[in-house]
Design a binder for these strands. Structure first.
Lengths: 196, 196
DNA sequence: TTATATATTTAACACTGTTAATTTAATTAA
DNA sequence: TTAATTAAATTAACAGTGTTAAATATATAA
């Protein structure tokens, strides 16, 4: 990387860091070009030298938040060995993470992207993120003959969309329930789906 | 209803009709106070004599679209008798309706409401809408001992959140698949969940 | 130091929702 | 019918939004 590239990369991180801070604390609705640039210490127009548009900017944060989410979940299931119990806890933790940061959920699942072709890799990473966290657990369950491989693939997809469905409903208050209630409901369904 | 109320109600329908047209054809992102008022043939400020704000305006459309959706589904399952087969088709039709009108899906599940207390009845109607379409089918299945009552309640909720999860993922292109693929996927899961 | 290239900022445009002031229309009283 | 009053609709204004072009400031090269 030559000097120019180093400097350009550095500039991008200033804007990205500001964006992440706002996303985490105030959510997607408070992201604005002027807001981000202010926090980064630059004029709003400067941002456009480093990012195509504001959608581009926020989508750049996805991988960082995935990393954070991964660490959050790791912490929640540490000392557990792969298997059905841990699988349930991973899904619970995933759910908890996005309830805690609804702005990040919006970024992952609601925000529409311009330039779909260019954003395809990011989209696919969102698509495969949750399954990627549980690969070991499914493998163990298949090896221990707790479940058949075909059923496992289907169940994995089923749980994934179920969790997303509950998240959107709960976060946007379409599902009328408080946190303990929704958490108990998720538990009940995970147990039912995995017939525990 | 006195004259004033009749006239007020009439004015509201003008704005509501314009809103529904835009929602159906161009989606939620193209709803704006000036846009709606233009189509209704009034100034944008006039709208505020009849609606608290723009969120209030769009949420007023929910019940109308629910009626439309109900009719769409009725048509898709006409001549079918209540039971497992029809239950699957109702869910399929529900899915199809929102794929056809993604703007209406956004209104139902994504748009955030101001004045949550006042909108609570509408929110609850969204929450209970899909289940209300399949009451007969669950009853028949329970009576014919195809399923136990407790399992039915759980399964109903499970299917509901699954459908919403797939819809949000497909409409916002988080789930990378074309229409036939996603439709086949939904079918497969419905059949699996209802062990057919 | 001067000329050139690059980076940053300001100004501008076309939007958004919302409110207050103003104008127009309708209704009532004389 | 005309004048006064009330109600409704419109225009103007404000504070936002994203984005682009022109103007300014900074850094690099000769």
């Amino acid at each position: 990387m030559n000097n120019k590239q180093i400097q350009e990369q550095r500039m991008r991180t200033y804007f990205l860091q500001a964006t992440r801070e706002i996303l985490r604390s105030e959510g997607l609705k408070n992201i604005s070009v002027r807001n981000v640039a202010d926090r980064a210490g630059y004029s709003y127009a400067t941002l456009y030298n480093y990012f195509k548009d504001v959608k581009d900017l926020v989508f750049e944060c996805v991988l960082d938040f995935q990393q954070e989410c991964r660490e959050f979940i790791s912490d929640e299931v540490k000392n557990m060995k792969p298997g059905r119990e841990r699988l349930v806890q991973i899904n619970r933790a995933y759910f908890k993470y996005f309830v805690q940061y609804p702005g990040i959920f919006e970024l992952f699942y609601i925000e529409k992207t311009t330039d779909l072709a260019h954003r395809q890799p990011t989209i696919e990473k969102i698509d495969t993120f949750l399954p990627s966290l549980m690969e070991e657990d499914w493998e163990v369950m298949i090896q221990e003959k707790v479940i058949e491989p075909e059923g496992a693939a289907l169940l994995q997809e089923q749980i994934r969309f179920f969790i997303v469905g509950v998240l959107i409903s709960y976060i946007n208050r379409r599902y009328v329930a408080d946190y303990p209630e929704v958490m108990a409901m998720v538990d009940q369904h995970l147990n039912y789906m995995l017939n525990m």
